[in-house]
Simulated assay, not measured.
Amino acid sequence: MASLKIKTGDMVKVIAGKDKDKEGKVIAVNKKNNTLLVEGINMVTKHTKPSMANQQGGIVQQEAPIDASNVMLLFKGQATRVGFKMDGDKKVRFAKKTGDVID
């Protein structure tokens, strides 16, 4: 399985779908399904029953997973593709637009 180029905590820009051109921070990554949870993106309405944790119940807005192919990494305010290269003996991500090392 190929490694995912976006990690938890990265800032991303949506490039396709109903939330196109919106930006947000990655909350969670699911490598198995190639999906991401992004803060404030792909909001859905969920009806919840009252429980011990949520006494009230009711209608809740929450993020739904978005496919990783529909987002691009934001690096220094620019959307860029991500590549991998060896920096000494360490594998690092780099921004293809600028060539700078991301982490």
Rank of each mutant, 00 (worst) to 15 (best):
K90E: 15
K46F: 03
K76F: 13
G57M: 03
R81A: 15
E23I: 06
K25M: 08
I27V: 12
V92I: 14
I66E: 02
V44R: 13
A79C: 13
G17C: 07
K18S: 11
G9L: 07
N30Y: 02
I27Q: 08
K32A: 11
I6Y: 00
I102T: 12
G57S: 04
N42V: 02
K5R: 12
I102R: 11
A28E: 14
G9E: 04
K46Q: 13
Q78L: 11
T98E: 11
F94P: 10
H47Q: 10
T98H: 07
T98L: 05
K76A: 15
V82L: 15
L37H: 08
N42F: 03
K5N: 07
Q56I: 00
G17L: 03
V29N: 02
G17N: 12
K25A: 10
G9V: 02
V38G: 00
K20S: 14
K32W: 04
Q56H: 07
F94I: 06
M11V: 11
F84V: 15
A53H: 13
I15D: 09
K18M: 06
V60K: 09
T45P: 08
Q61I: 03
I41P: 01
M43E: 13
M11N: 09
T45R: 08
K96V: 12
P50A: 00
D103I: 12
N33K: 09
L37A: 06
V101P: 06
T35I: 06
K32G: 08
